[in-house]
Design a protein around this nucleic acid. Structure first.
Length: 755
DNA sequence: CACAGGTCTCTTTTT
DNA sequence: GAGACCTGTG
């Protein structure tokens, strides 16, 4: 037997050797899923004579796709690059770029992101005079998105809606929205799947050609697929039935985005002859961490029964700490990371801080800066969603596809050209009346009677775009972007405009140009403007994570799926935040189960050490909230917690009932944290070494004072160091303070300064 | 038409 | 607490 198979355990082997017919791999967290998939592909190519060209592997992110390709590449002699590895969305885009003209679109369609669709919806609601106080734009968008996920057309929707005022409204708006996108030759994210399925159904010979091409299909993260995605896969696999799906129902966390957990739970119903393999041996985490994860997820009903185990050993206990405030929480985490680094226990890159909502990142960032800890935040505001980047992209989109009304309107007065809302409305009215695009109406500005002298302002804009367009075939994308920036004096206008963010915006633009250059360099075929825009439209935040640099990573639990870290900090475990308030009050109990799965995902990211934190008090949307620790914490058996962690006042009995804490003496470091006004630490943050210099202050590995030295403490003032002991996680320093007496404290927290 | 300054609302999670 | 939105003024 080949060595690619020998590397696997028995269960994994079973999965890898089953290359023909439907296969469901239930892969628990950390069970070596990627290894099975890659080895299975290698086995098919090397041992079964499968042509790599006939293999399609669909992953969740571009990052995962890239990793899979390079791992297969390392294993097989040649041919790995002809395997089609891509995300659902990019796979569909590639198909549609070729054939979408068959269903009435131009092959140079643009892809509308969330902002763009919002802009479209705003216009529609205004036009249809919808009361957006009653029914906000995003409600329509989410209804439409769900309809598309379920393959419900506007006319289907209208039929079902009869009788219900709200649904009728949605149906009307939905129909209008479709018309608008079509007119703009634009597709939204959901359309990419939907139109591909439509194409396949309308043109059986096209479907057939793809069925012939993709004789072996693999889908990763199958638990997160929605109905259209499943339909897409089902159609492709209908002929050869070599479909292998890999997933874990316990990690299904995208219901809000339409993911249908039934896809994985009912796979065997759709494919009765499917072979099912369960991978339960975990190669990532210690047994304690797995026990915690199993205990939490065990509270969910209607899941496929499984339990992770490992031969890695028990490992250390899980830390839990309830802090007084979110500030304290952030400080605790930052201090812990600094201490770990100093002790040589974990490097920055070994640590990840996870949270439920993006907003939580801010405080954490401040404390990390204060401690001089280098970090990267994944997500938040997507790079390509930033104003300056969207502006440049809008120029590029306008040049590429002038039917993209949203793009044209975005830049028509950016930088300012004295073209205001009144003029824009008149042009739009004219466009509507003549059933032409906004840009085409601009070209005919002379013929719009009501517009008057404003047409003098419109002409130069149209000319400029036409000039860019005529240059396009002769220059590189980088040159084009620079040309746009120069012609419009974009940066100069930026400087005049907002002084505050100017610097970071210019940096972003530079970064954008780097990405343009990178695209042109790595592109094997002719790099094109459309190709670049397409790539940009489909990148996820996680795709840009640079794992080479030695930095702490901050991200949401959703972004963390599929990743692993030696030390994971799970923050904000509070009722109302995680699980979120929305899901606690929801009458649909499955919402809470989804939160629990999210918690399960978080716990199982940890390899060696897991720290869970919560705050008693936290600012949420400008309002202070007081929250109890999350129910999920209470679902973890208390025996798994390290109760000796300073500051942990929660005692959990094995009956999962919190026991009233005994009077608690606040450790010195925590009192300081409280006594110190937050502003003070913010100003000190500036004095801390910049992360940009690459100097990490926490890395000395030893203290800069010794026994007998006089030191200063932020609250207790001057004192003499009596003793320094090396503890398990930090140095314990005993100091005799003038006026405060002898105190024992952790060096990592106390931040004593030698004087 | 642009801009300053006030008010209002709130996505949890994202391809 | 921030961003989107509205309104009055120049």
């Amino acid at each position: 037997m080949s060595n690619v198979i020998d590397m696997l355990n028995d269960k994994q082997k079973e999965a890898a050797l089953h290359t023909e017919g439907p296969l469901l791999i239930l892969a628990g967290a950390g069970s070596g899923k990627t290894r099975v998939i890659t080895n299975r592909i290698a086995y098919m190519i090397d041992e079964c004579g499968v042509n790599p060209w006939n293999i399609l592997a669909i992953t969740f992110t571009n990052k995962a796709a890239g990793e899979m390709r390079s791992r297969v590449d390392d294993m097989v002699g040649f041919g790995a690059d002809s395997i089609w590895v891509a995300t659902f969305h990019s796979t569909c885009v590639r198909i549609l770029r070729r054939y979408i003209d068959k269903i009435g679109y131009d092959t140079n369609f643009t892809i509308y992101d969330t902002d763009d669709t919002k802009a479209v919806m705003k216009g529609i609601c205004k036009r249809l005079k919808v009361d957006t106080k009653q029914m906000p734009e995003r409600a329509f968008l989410s209804a439409i998105s769900h309809a598309k996920d379920e393959m419900i057309t506007p006319s289907d929707y209208a039929l079902d809606a009869a009788g219900s005022y709200g649904a009728e409204q949605v149906a009307k708006v939905y129909a209008e929205y479709e018309k608008e996108l079509k007119k703009s030759n634009a597709l939204d994210f959901d359309d990419l799947l939907l139109k591909t399925v439509e194409l396949f159904k309308a043109w059986p010979d096209i479907l057939d050609s793809y069925q012939e091409r993709f004789r072996y299909i693999m889908v990763d993260e199958y638990q997160d697929t929605n109905t259209v995605q499943f339909e897409f896969v089902k159609l492709l696999a209908a002929k050869y039935r070599n479909i292998c799906v890999v997933g874990d129902d316990d990690q299904s966390i995208y219901k809000f985005r339409g993911a249908n957990i039934r896809n994985i739970l009912d796979f065997e119903k759709v494919y009765p002859d499917a072979m099912v393999v369960k991978l339960e041996q975990n190669y990532r985490s210690t047994q304690n961490i797995l026990d915690a994860a199993n205990a939490v997820i065990g509270n969910n009903k209607g899941r496929k029964d499984k339990a992770l185990w490992t031969d890695k050993g028990e490992g250390g206990l899980i830390h839990f700490r309830q802090c007084d405030s979110a500030y304290d929480e952030a400080e605790y985490v930052a201090d812990s990371i600094a201490a770990n680094k100093r002790d040589g226990k974990y490097d920055y890159r070994d640590c990840a801080i996870l949270y439920r909502t993006n907003a939580q990142a801010r405080l954490l960032e401040e404390k990390l800066i204060f401690e001089g800890i280098p970090y990267d935040v994944v997500g938040g505001v997507n790079f390509y969603a930033r104003r300056e980047i969207k502006d440049i992209l809008a120029y590029l989109k306008t040049i590429d596809n002038a039917r993209d009304d949203i793009a044209v309107k975005r830049i028509i007065n950016v930088p300012r050209r004295g073209i205001g809302a009144t003029t824009i409305n008149k042009v739009q009215d004219y466009a509507n009346a003549n059933d032409i695009s906004f840009y085409d109406a601009l070209k005919k500005a002379d013929e719009i009677p009501s517009i008057g002298r404003s047409s003098d302002k419109l002409k130069p804009f149209v000319n400029m775009i036409q000039v860019f367009r005529s240059k396009l075939p002769h220059i590189t994308l980088e040159e084009l972007v620079n040309d746009i920036l120069e012609t419009t004096a974009y940066i100069e206008n930026l400087e005049a405009d907002d002084k505050e963010d100017e610097e970071s915006r210019i940096e972003n633009i530079e970064e954008f140009i780097n990405k343009v250059v990178a695209y042109e360099e790595e592109q094997e075929d002719e790099p094109t403007l459309s190709g670049f825009l397409e790539e940009v439209a489909l990148v996820a935040d996680i795709d840009n994570v640079n794992t080479d640099s030695n930095k702490v990573l901050l991200m949401t639990l959703h972004s963390a799926k599929g990743l692993e870290f030696p030390h994971v900090y799970l923050t904000g475990l509070e009722e109302g935040l995680f699980p979120s308030y929305m899901n606690i009050v929801s009458d649909d109990p499955s919402e809470l189960e989804e939160e629990r799965r999210l918690c399960y995902v978080g716990i199982t990211r940890a390899m060696d050490e897991l720290t869970i934190t919560s705050a008693r008090q936290r600012m949420v949307r400008g309002e202070t909230q007081y929250n109890a620790p999350s129910r999920f914490v209470k679902e973890i058996p208390s025996a798994l917690f390290d109760l000796k962690v300073p500051g942990n006042r929660i005692r959990l009995s094995d009956g999962n009932v919190p026991v009233k804490a005994k009077p608690y003496a606040m450790p010195a470091h925590e009192r300081n944290a409280k006594a110190r006004p937050y502003i003070a630490s913010a100003s000190k943050a500036m004095a801390a070494p910049s992360i940009l210099t690459g100097k990490d202050i926490g890395s000395s590995g030893s203290l800069d004072y010794g026994e007998g030295d006089t030191v200063r403490h932020i609250k207790f003032g001057e004192g003499v160091v009596l003793k320094i002991e090396k503890g398990t996680r930090d140095y314990e320093v005993t100091v005799d303070f003038k006026g405060y007496g002898v105190k024992k404290m952790f060096a990592g927290f106390a931040k004593l300064k030698k004087i």
